[in-house]
Write a protein that binds this DNA or RNA. Structure first.
Lengths: 131, 131
DNA sequence: ATGACTGCAAACTCTTTGCACAACA
DNA sequence: TGTTGTGCAAAGAGTTTGCAGTCAT
């Protein structure tokens, strides 16, 4: 986990931002979560951090390019550590999310002049267990 | 617009649901909107309908397969009349949404056993005007 | 030391719910 | 006429904001 802290520390310093415990802890947790996190889940795991801090830190981490906001279906914002551009298959019944690799193929469909910053693919349906 | 009303009337009757003015009006508006609608936009155009009615009607129309809920980035639910499965290119700056046709190509990436009910593709970036 | 960051609490937005009235069948 | 659907108002989630105290530099 130390490598993670160093990475974030470097990015923060580079932008003149302070290195604080909440930032390191939230970053660690997002990076350690295999798939996706909500602000609420983070608050469950870090109860001593206020929602305000969690949200503002997530916003900062997004600006730093370390975390990504993913649109979700239930009106809840889902966050994701930035690794590779990818898509999600979302089970309508149990909510399970699977990463898929279709985002790249989708890029070819952009309208003329559109500068793609990221491609999100969501497949909604029933996972193998629920089907 | 009469064809629309007839279509919805048929679907409603088929399911034993009543045909009401709010349902017809909301359906017309969603169908008439070139791209996507939020519940709030509908309420602006139909101020005499209560939010509760708008939401419950949208939910009904979704169950009837006439309208689709689209995940959005700003924590606002976006609705879309059902036509062809498609994706969206969303401008990060001005919020403009363009339909794209990439959803089909994305289907091939589903995990094993996953039953796709719909495929959503979102490209986030800057549209030609904002770039 | 000083300025940025955090926590607390309240506010805000979007959406849902409960109940009485109105409208469809 | 008998339900079902609607409006109103309040409640409920999730997220944002303001301000005073705390901590990194």
């Amino acid at each position: 986990m130390d490598a993670l802290d160093h990475k974030l520390t470097a990015v923060l310093r580079e932008r003149g931002q302070r290195v604080t415990q909440p930032r390191l802890r939230i970053h660690r947790l997002v990076a350690a979560t295999p798939r996706h996190v909500t602000a609420d889940q983070l608050h469950d795991e870090l109860p001593d951090l206020s929602p305000a801090t969690i949200y503002s830190t997530l916003e900062l981490l997004e600006e730093l390019g370390v975390v990504r906001r993913v649109a979700s279906l239930e009106g809840v914002t889902v966050y994701d550590s930035v690794s590779e551009p990818h898509g999600h298959a979302v089970c309508r019944r149990c909510g399970a999310m699977f990463d898929i690799a279709a985002a790249d193929t989708a890029r070819s469909a952009a309208p003329a002049g559109f500068e793609i910053e990221r491609a999100e693919v969501q497949l909604i349906g029933l996972c193998a267990r629920c089907a």
